[in-house]
Structure formats: structure tokens, C-alpha cells
């Protein structure tokens, strides 16, 4: 049967059907990315991991920026207000990103408690 044009729920994607001999820790990311669509699980997984990666990259960038600033200040003994503003904004954005990732504390579902007694 040919796959239907719309995405049915519960569909399995390359991340679901490829086994260990077909992908490893190095190629898994590329396999998911090259797949035209992901199942619900791999889609949310990829989105959440990508957000984490972006925040990691931001951390690196801000480290480099801070380092450059110190260097410049040492040399010229002068700080422009523009620099300070920029680093303030950078820090603000960072703290937002970080708190975004940690807000939700979710109660785990307990299937055994669902059984109701009449």
C-alpha cells in the first residue's frame, strides 16, 4: 500500500524502523534529519534536543564575547556603553533560555491508580 499524503497518527519513521546495524551514535542525527517526516516521538525529541543545542551554542558565544571584552578593556582601558548594553542583553537572553528549559515539573502518570472501584 502506498503511504497516504497526510500524516497518520502513530506512524513510524526512520528513527523507529532502522536497527542497530543501520545507524549509530554518529549517524542517528543525520538519519532523523534526512527523514521527510518523523513520528510524534522523534519529532518532539528532535525539537527539544535542537533547542538544547542552540542554548549550548549561545553559552559558547557568550563565553567568547566576555573573553574578547576583557581583552579589549585591558588594552584600551576604555569601555563603550554600547558594549555594556550588548553584553547585558546577551545575559538577559541567556537567563531566559535557561529558565525556559527548567520550568516544568510534571507529575508522572501512575497507571495502576487509574483502576476505579465501583
Amino acid at each position: 500500500k502506498p503511504p497516504s499524503a497526510s500524516k497518520p497518527r502513530g506512524l513510524r519513521c526512520a528513527g523507529c524502523v532502522k536497527h542497530m546495524n543501520e545507524m549509530d551514535s554518529r549517524s542517528f542525527g543525520a538519519v532523523l534529519r534526512s527523514c521527510r517526516f518523523q513520528c510524534d516521538f522523534h519529532l518532539v525529541l528532535r525539537e527539544a534536543e535542537d533547542r538544547f543545542r542552540r542554548s549550548q551554542q549561545l553559552k559558547r558565544t557568550s563565553h567568547t564575547l566576555t573573553h574578547t571584552h576583557i581583552h579589549t578593556h585591558d588594552k584600551n582601558r576604555k569601555s563603550t556603553s554600547e558594549d555594556t548594553e550588548r553584553s547585558k542583553r546577551e545575559k538577559h537572553r541567556l537567563s531566559h533560555q535557561t529558565s525556559d528549559r527548567c520550568v516544568s515539573l510534571t507529575p508522572l502518570r501512575r497507571p495502576r491508580e487509574i483502576h476505579s472501584v465501583r
Binding site: 542517528f28 516521538f41 538544547f52
Partner: peptide, 11 residues
């Protein structure tokens, strides 16, 4: 194996 991905603890 694609179902056994261990994502970072924070997400």
C-alpha cells in the same frame, strides 16, 4: 535503537 535515545536531563 532509535527509541532508546537518552536526552539531556534538563529536557
Amino acid at each position: 535503537i532509535g527509541h532508546y535515545v537518552l536526552p539531556p536531563a534538563s529536557i
